[in-house]
């Protein structure tokens, strides 16, 4: 049994991690691992980079085609899409955020891992407001594949 089946925590080995080259370009990473009847990410992608054979499949991302626009992050009902772009020593992570307060641009927040534990400081670089707000944070590159939520500390 996988850890996510028992505890709800995805491990890196469960994921299709893009190569360094694609991470530098900035692409979407899917953490949707279960066959559920759902496909808004496929519909939302403007460049047809996300594919599914049937609606019950898990999404496959073509990193060559992916332009890192974030539409799938906004569309995914399971909040299981993230954008990751590694630039030198730091990484930009775009994640869905449905809580209050919404942080300000350049605000220092805490980055949380998949268990909700604080792992490092992060700086908010971009906010795309909506009912699901997309927050782009900057973290040290080593946390690119770990930081998946934020905590606003005021």
């Amino acid at each position: 049994m996988k850890r996510w089946e028992r505890e709800g925590v995805v491990e890196l080995e469960d994921l299709d991690i893009p190569s360094e080259e694609y991470l530098r370009k900035g692409v979407a990473i899917t953490e949707c691992l279960q066959e559920i009847p759902c496909n808004p990410c496929v519909e939302a992608c403007p460049v047809d980079a996300i594919s599914m054979e049937t609606i019950n499949d898990t999404p496959k991302i073509d990193y060559e085609k992916c332009i890192g626009c974030g539409n799938c992050v906004d569309a995914c009902p399971g909040l299981a899409m993230f954008l990751v772009k590694v630039t030198g020593d730091s990484a930009l992570i775009t994640l869905p955020y449905e809580f209050l307060p919404v942080p300000e641009k350049e605000e220092r927040v805490k980055a949380l891992n998949r268990e909700g534990k604080e792992i490092c400081d992060a700086v908010v670089k971009r906010i795309r407001r909506g009912r699901t707000t997309l927050v782009t944070i900057e973290v040290p590159a080593e946390y690119a594949l770990e930081a998946r939520n934020i905590k606003v500390v005021r």
Binding site: W4, V9, E31, Q34, I36, G78, N113, E115, K117
Partner: peptide
């Protein structure tokens, strides 16, 4: 759904 479990876990 695992995606629901994952987002709950991310909130601690």
């Amino acid at each position: 759904y695992m995606v629901h479990a994952a987002k709950v876990r991310r909130c601690g």
